[in-house]
C-alpha cells in the first residue's frame, strides 16, 4: 500500500469525513482535470470504505481515571 494511502488511514474519523466532503465539493466544481478527478475518486472510495469499516467494527474503549499510590491521576482500561 502506498505511503499516501497509509497516511489517509491515520486521519481521525472526523478528519476523514471532512476530507470526503471536500472531495465531493471539489468534484462538484467540475474544474478538476480528469486525472485528478480519478485520483479524488480513488481517495474518496478509500476514505468511505475505511470510515464504514471503522464504524462497523469499532468496539467502544472504556477507561477509568483514578489516583495512583503517588497521588497522580492515572488512566486504566476497564472492561466494557
Amino acid at each position: 500500500m502506498s505511503k499516501a494511502v497509509k497516511q489517509k488511514e491515520e486521519l481521525s474519523f472526523e478528519e476523514s469525513l471532512k476530507r470526503l466532503e471536500e472531495i465531493v465539493e471539489t468534484l462538484e466544481t467540475g474544474n478538476a482535470p480528469l486525472e485528478e478527478s480519478i485520483k479524488l475518486y480513488e481517495e474518496g472510495m478509500t476514505l468511505a470504505k475505511s470510515c464504514m469499516t471503522r464504524l462497523n467494527e469499532a468496539k467502544l474503549k472504556l477507561k477509568k481515571i483514578q489516583k495512583n499510590a503517588g497521588g497522580a491521576l492515572e488512566e486504566t482500561d476497564i472492561e466494557n
Binding site: 469525513l17 472531495i23 465531493v24 468534484l27 480519478i38 479524488l40 475518486y41 474518496g44 472510495m45 468511505a48
Partner: peptide, 21 residues
C-alpha cells in the same frame, strides 16, 4: 446516519466522475 451520509458522498463522487467522463 453517518453511514447514510458516507453512502451519499460515495454516490455523489461516482456521479460527478461519471459526469466528467
Amino acid at each position: 446516519e453517518v453511514i447514510a451520509g458516507i453512502k451519499s458522498d460515495v454516490r455523489n463522487i461516482g456521479r460527478l466522475v461519471e459526469q466528467k467522463i
